[in-house]
Design a protein around this nucleic acid. Sequence first.
DNA 1: CCTGTCTTTTTTTATGACGAACTTTGGGAG
DNA 2: CTCCCAAAGTTCGTCATAAAAAAAGACAGG
Lengths: 224, 224
Amino acid sequence: MSEDLQLDMDSYLPLRDVVFNTLRNAILRGDLKPGERLMEMHLANKLGVSRTPIREAIRMLEQEGLAVTIPRKGAQVAKMTEKDLQDVLEIRDSLDELAVSMACKRMTPEQLVELKESMHDFELATRTKDVRKIVEADETFHNVIYRMADNPKLENIVNNLREQMYRYRYEYVKGNSTYSQLIEEHAAIIEGFERQDSQYVKNIMHTHLENQIEAVRMVIRGQE
Amino acid sequence: MSEDLQLDMDSYLPLRDVVFNTLRNAILRGDLKPGERLMEMHLANKLGVSRTPIREAIRMLEQEGLAVTIPRKGAQVAKMTEKDLQDVLEIRDSLDELAVSMACKRMTPEQLVELKESMHDFELATRTKDVRKIVEADETFHNVIYRMADNPKLENIVNNLREQMYRYRYEYVKGNSTYSQLIEEHAAIIEGFERQDSQYVKNIMHTHLENQIEAVRMVIRGQE
DNA sequence: CCTGTCTTTTTTTATGACGAACTTTGGGAG
DNA sequence: CTCCCAAAGTTCGTCATAAAAAAAGACAGG
């Protein structure tokens, strides 16, 4: 559990942000599992930094809902209950509708091209059978849509909400080897955007989301 | 600018949380103005704590959108542009609709009573002409509605969005001495809930929100 | 064998001091 | 007046330290 943490010393960012991104990714891809403790010294040693940037990163994770800290006991990776999942989905559904409405109104032809490209990338990714690639490609596809809505705050909120499901969805994608349905849905979404048929796209998005619920729910149930 | 910062040493909370709440309130009620710098040492001295809890609190504010930090330059109280306001309103509109739908389905009789009480409190508050009391009573009223929706995450997100408008709305409420319209709208909302007429409530909520936009927009324009 | 209490250890929390890196500012040279 | 450089101010990250709380373990008594 939780090996392989390593800093991406990319460009010049404050260490707290590097740590934040590192931990965030570790949580999302399941290297740090729900309920696992986040001990300052431990992480500091493992990442080779001092405790200060670790603590700041934990505060950020906390505010994003990826970690929960109990005073004087420390932080853990947030667990999700079925109720939490339900709540998140409710909101996502609503915001997806909003995003689609806005995207229909505001999208540029270039963005439509970009969307098609990312759908194509997704298709390619499914052939590799590399779960991580597939999930990432899917995220990219949806991110393009949210960006089309031209509302950065919306993008941000939806991303936070999606994050909270990802780590569970990971497991779901892993188990599910039939991506044809996903591909068809993506195609339908694009078709809808081309016709500017916002209602049509909303419906597809809704079922698209709906299809994931059961699977994620299963994973959550098996969470002890 | 920014005197009078003082810690509420309430119950036993980690200092970072106390600092966070203190700064948050100061920002919301305008004691710390948009664009004002948040210097670690200054705040630490003013609040009588060390830099560590200050830094952690700033990270939290940042994640809530109330502060913006530029690496190696430090944090400022977040400013809002008209586009930001537009974006926030779009989302709030959407989430208000969701909240109302859910509240209609899930509300308990006790909550309806609570809502009526908080409307009454609002009426009383308007008579005092105390801006802070009025704003708080209005927030309470709306919070009851969000709580009726029984979706804590939704409550949290909407609160964050509202926060970002509060400090501007403060000015608006200050200038506006006719609260009769607000009172009527609140009454209409309750009436709608009693009839479980979700569409009706949504409409009222929408105009209720719409009424605030222009005023907030004015304040933002005068922001230099 | 289990239970409750006491002690020890671990961990969080908060402080203070320090140096390095970066920004800004203000003065002086051209 | 403009450009450049030095000085001052800040952030950023590290380290050492100490207090307080929680967890873990030891141990005596039922």
